[in-house]
Amino acid sequence: MFNIETHIKAGSVQEAISLLMENPNARLIAGGTDVLIKLREGKPAFRHLVDIHGLAELNGIEKLPDNTLVIGSGTTFTQAIESDIIQTHIPILTDAAGSVGGPQIRNVATIGGNICNGVTSADSASPLFSLNALLSLQGPDGTRHLPIADFYKGPGRVDLGPGEILTAIRIRPEDYEQAFGYYYKYAMRNAMDIATIGCAVCLKTSGGTLTDYRLAFGVAGPVPIRCREAEKAVKGHPLTPALLEKIAATVVRDVNPRTSWRASKEFRLNIITELSKRATKKALTRAGEELS
């Protein structure tokens, strides 16, 4: 039995916001694949629950008339994998969703919960960093849109104000159209494992050069990060093998991995440089480019 004191099912986003405002100790539960584990471990933080599990308002993936992609925070990883819109326009998220847990977890775990738990290893986080995703945060004073890079405050800490709920994730057309991405997860096992390092690349090419390059990592620091130095170093670079070497050489300046039981800092640095090359190569292949 879970140590739950109060559990209230919210019938709408508005109601969930009101319930959170009424009880400052209350926390949201969506898929529960993080929350229920913490309760199982006896953590008291989730004793009061506002339940948004399966709330229709938060579920769904659509393409707006201006081509912005909108992913409801309550979308499960299985729904993301099965989505034609995601598969067609941002397959990097299909890669990431497919790498999460096992089928039972993907059937229940939500993309919103993955972002809001503030964990650096969240498989959807670095792809969304590389896509310049905007988070729609609805609270008692209305809705604001925040770049995902500004959302993470520290391990397990995100920029959610009192009563605020992540309702959707938005990807703007300029960030995905003619752009090609790839997510590379390195873990000890091929399934049911947390990333040792997760690497996301999104790029655009034109006339034999790299015109846009966005590189993001999970577990390369206390929160997911973008690699601005490496990005700056190779924007406009010709599509030659030297490109990969340049990325690998500069990316070490952007990252700050640590030693844990899973892997040492040195090993992680090695994986980071290697994955930056491999993921870039895979994204280039998706773009129909070859290094020569």
Binding site: R40, N107, V108
Partner: peptide, 27 residues
């Protein structure tokens, strides 16, 4: 395991496979 790792508690809810150990009964 009780924490979603082993699948021994797998059942189907509306034909979707879930780990019932980390699925609230109210759902």
């Amino acid at each position: 395991c009780g924490v979603g790792e082993c699948g021994a508690c797998s059942i189907m809810v509306d034909d979707v496979l879930v780990d019932s150990c980390i699925f609230l009964a109210v759902w």
